[in-house]
Amino acid sequence: MNRIVVVIVVIAGVAVALFPAYAQRLLRAVGHPLANLAVAPMERLAVMDRGLRDWWTQRMALQDIHDRNRALRRTVAKLEGEANQWRERVLALERFSALLDFQQRAPVPTLAAMVIGRDASNWYQGVMLNKGAEDGVRPEMGVITPAGVVGHIVKTGRSTSIALLMIDPNVVIGGLVQRTRDEGMIQGTSQGHVRMKYIPPLSSVKQGDVVVTSGLTGGFPRGVLIGRVAQVEESESDLFQVAAVDPAVRFRQLEEVLIVLAPHPSDVELTLEPAGPSSASRAPAP
């Protein structure tokens, strides 16, 4: 068998050497159908190979994108945190500059303070301030913001003080309806609202009227904004009118306040001497 194969190969080799053109024609005639048979699977394989290569490249690229995405997300989170801090600083700066502007324009000496907490018991509407007796703060001093009246100081520690908000029923401030010049008493309610009592029965006070401090009671100068009349409650049997007042200050968003050191110009020298005039223009502690 082996010999036969060897003989055939030798004869074929001799034939190819002697008649190359015929041999090539013969080979082409036999090879073409075979080649056609092989092309189809080859094409499939080539497509599969390309697909595999693409899939792999894509996978590697995706992995890379995934890694870069994670890194970018981390960076974005970090930058968002930083941006937030900056935004907070800008807002604080805006508040401080408004407060400083108001403090410089205010007709009475004031001391800037920061709200550092709320009343520790649940029964009073109060805030804790970061300025106390050593800064010249005394009980009964008024507390205001550029928006209007906040309340008054009721208790002082060495470096802190407690201010009772205007919405507490224990706070009573002298108020004045700006348009009609009628006086009354501003008092908080247990529901956290503000009412103006003892308005003269013939007063033409109406919804939307501006209410300011009268300067007669409490530690406030005359003319500090309290709020606007939201509703007038008039009853024939009552001797006076009562009005619900919408306060100008948003008490839940209090962050910085001004403590009125001397509500009346005549008190300025008297009050400022022991506290020291420099403390009045101090900016709020960060």
């Binding site: 907490g117 520790a120 018991s121 029964w123 009073y124 407690i162």
Partner: peptide, 8 residues
């Protein structure tokens, strides 16, 4: 503590 940090 509560009395110190309260208005009461």
């Amino acid at each position: 503590g509560q009395d110190i940090f309260s208005a009461g």
